[in-house]
Design a binder for these strands. Structure first.
Lengths: 198, 198
DNA sequence: CACGAATGTAGGCACCGACAACAATGCTGT
DNA sequence: ACAGCATTGTTGTCGGTGCCTACATTCGTG
């Protein structure tokens, strides 16, 4: 029997999964712990065993978001090839994730997180940044990227990709702009990274 | 007498003002129409005369945010001077506004807005973009900026500034990085805008 | 100055998040 | 095998919230 067991088995994971669906379908404001519990066939207080707070659930959800984003970034760019291609792949992976999970991205970068959760989120975000940093370092080695401290190149580039994704996701860009704009953004980033022309 | 009049005078503006304070102090989740009404000494249903919805109030708040942001951008950069200086001023104005109003910025770019409100917000955002576009066009005229369609230069640059502001505001950048990073970002943007070196 | 529109009030409803007291289940040491 | 304890889930309750409807007061305009 499935429906009548007292213990759910993995309620925590089920809550996160269902929460993300609801987030995607009805927005963050409509996310209610009680409704989640109802959907999963457990009592309204059961979620509190796994998340002390509604905010705790949101924090956890944001964390899974970063993990999936990192995974998407990791498998996106081939390990070798010209810097320009790898950068483009990374940017497409980032923007692709963003447009596929707009509400989640919003949640990930949202201001109000528990301080402790924020720490974990920073860690996860940092991990993604490392991939970009590695790419830039490689590019410097092959001379495709200007020399200098990696983060002075990496941070602006990341800001550009993230900013573009955020604008596109927020609906402030027309679908048209969102589609064609990314290529412009990529060539612009490449210009920012390129070594000075002697 | 002030406290016993039946009509408030300008409840709508008072609501928006108080809402922003609450937003700043206790975050968006803690914003309650009833509490706003209580704070302003008015009955719990009074706000509904001015905002059909809680979301409507948030939309209106976001709109005022864009208006103030545009104002900040407009008075930031001097009308003439080298392109680099004007760009730096604009970027500082943007990031300054963002760090001074983190929760509000979050709200402004948040995903879930009423479609109709979204339209108004797009208009307001577009107005800000126009300032950047004008700056770029000037730069092209003086040869400080590479030729080509303005939006192909403007959009990436805007994305960079916005993305950096968003990262800084979200707490994902250390205060250290947030402070020094902006200058790196600006020089990087300038590189992206500069004409090809012959 | 009357009357309709705008604005504010009072009450109620369903829902929510958090808490506390209690019940069933799983796990571990003996 | 089983006793005892931690984990997980249940029920009940509390104050609070958003939204709705019906009613009251005030404002502005004919």
């Amino acid at each position: 029997m499935h429906s009548r067991r007292y213990h759910h088995g993995d309620l925590r994971a089920a809550l996160l999964e269902r929460a993300e669906e609801t987030l995607r379908e009805k927005g963050p404001a409509a996310l209610s712990l009680r409704e989640l519990a109802r959907d999963l066939g457990v009592s309204h207080a059961a979620p509190s065993r796994h998340f002390k707070d509604k905010q705790a659930l949101l924090d956890a959800l944001a964390l899974t978001g970063f993990e999936r984003l990192n995974a998407a970034l990791a498998q996106g760019p081939a390990l070798d090839g010209p810097f320009a291609d790898r950068l483009a792949a990374l940017a497409h992976a980032y923007v692709g994730f963003a447009t596929a999970n707009p509400e989640l991205l919003d949640l990930m970068y949202t201001v109000k997180h528990d301080p402790q959760a924020t720490e974990a989120l920073i860690g996860a975000a940092y991990q993604g940044l490392q991939q970009a940093a590695a790419l830039v370092a490689d590019g410097q080695r092959t001379g495709e990227v200007r020399p200098g401290p990696v983060e002075q190149i990496c941070l602006p580039a990341l800001a550009t990709v993230h900013g573009f994704a955020d604008l596109a996701v927020g609906g402030l860009l027309s679908p048209e702009e969102a589609r064609t704009g990314l290529d412009d953004v990529i060539t612009y980033i490449l210009r920012g990274c390129a070594p000075d022309q002697a």
